[in-house]
Simulated assay, not measured.
Amino acid sequence: MADNISSQNIDNDHRELSRRGLLFVLSSPSGAGKSTLASMLLQADDEIAMSVSVTTRAKRPGEEHGKDYYFVSGEEFEEMVADHSFLEYATVFGHRYGTPAVPVNESLADGQDVLFDIDWQGTQQLYQRAGQDVVRVFILPPTLGELRSRLDSRNTDSPEIIESRMQRATSEISHWDGYDYVLINDDLEACFAKVKQILATERMRRARQTGLIGFVRDLMAE
């Protein structure tokens, strides 16, 4: 893991107007659209990159270590927990997932935004560790009936799994008020436009303009 998440030097010259990155979280019940929206955002915006998680689940065909996930054993995962190496971690459907802190912090310092497709528990942990850098967006389905219809149309899960996801959805939706923004995904393109608008607005926050103080100082000295 150390080879994959090594440290790097940071340019501290504040005379140039620069920006600190942000942690952009998309959460939703399964089927409400967060993964689709995340994929669209990654394709449309080269200033944001997907967070690469550590996981204990087996590698699937076509997946690459360090690109899709960092694949580790249960013992290695526990060691990282003990070393406080994660910004957030959770157990999902029997497998453990966590966000390594070092590469995320390096991205923030370099002005690179990091995208997270995580649930409310992971979002809560992330906010506790890095609140000033976190922007939380929750995606709601227009109705629970529409959510079930979307899960059915995937043709990838058994009726039992779909029912489990619907029960989980009710719990996840109950945490909507722990987010900064809440969107209803009744039209994918319209919802995506709002996601982009939120990201653009948050990038312009004064607190994230790390070169602003030096820029204004130099401006006033002219």
Rank of each mutant, 00 (worst) to 15 (best):
Y89V: 04
D133C: 09
P103L: 09
A90I: 06
D68W: 06
S27P: 04
Y97N: 02
I118R: 14
V104G: 03
A101Q: 08
P29D: 06
S53C: 14
E78T: 07
A109K: 04
L115Y: 06
H84K: 15
E88L: 15
K34L: 01
L87R: 12
D110Y: 11
E76I: 12
M50D: 01
L22H: 09
F24R: 10
L42M: 01
R136V: 12
D117T: 07
S28D: 12
S35K: 00
L42P: 00
L41H: 00
G131M: 03
S28N: 07
K67D: 03
D45A: 02
R19N: 08
V102T: 07
E63I: 00
G33L: 12
V25F: 13
F77K: 13
A109N: 00
S107Q: 03
V134M: 10
V92Q: 05
Y97K: 08
K34W: 02
Q132V: 11
A90G: 13
E75F: 05
E106N: 10
L108S: 02
D117I: 03
A32P: 05
A109Q: 07
R96W: 08
Q128T: 14
K34V: 14
E79I: 06
Y97D: 06
S28C: 10
R57E: 05
E78C: 01
L41Q: 00
Y89K: 09
T56D: 05
A49L: 10
Q112T: 03
L41K: 01
L140S: 12
R96V: 01
L41E: 00
L37V: 08
L23T: 02
D133Y: 13
G98M: 09
F77H: 08
V25N: 02
P103K: 06
V114H: 08
L108N: 00
S35T: 12
T36H: 01
H95S: 15
V102F: 01
V102E: 12
E106T: 09
S107L: 05
D110K: 09
T91G: 06
F86D: 12
S107P: 00
Q125V: 12
P61I: 05
G31L: 14
R57T: 02
L140C: 02
A44N: 04
R129Q: 15
A109S: 03
F71V: 00
Q124Y: 10
D45N: 12
T91D: 09
V102Q: 14
R136Q: 11
G74R: 10
D119P: 14
M80Q: 08
G21V: 01
S27D: 07
T36K: 06
D68M: 01
L41M: 00
S35W: 03
P100C: 03
S27I: 14
R129L: 11
S107H: 04
Y69P: 07
G21T: 01
T55Y: 06
D119S: 15
G74N: 08
Q124T: 15
P100Q: 10
L108Q: 07
Y127E: 15
M40F: 04
W120A: 15
A130V: 03
W120S: 15
G111P: 01
D45C: 08
T56H: 09
I48N: 09
L37H: 01
E106W: 02
P29R: 05
A109Y: 01
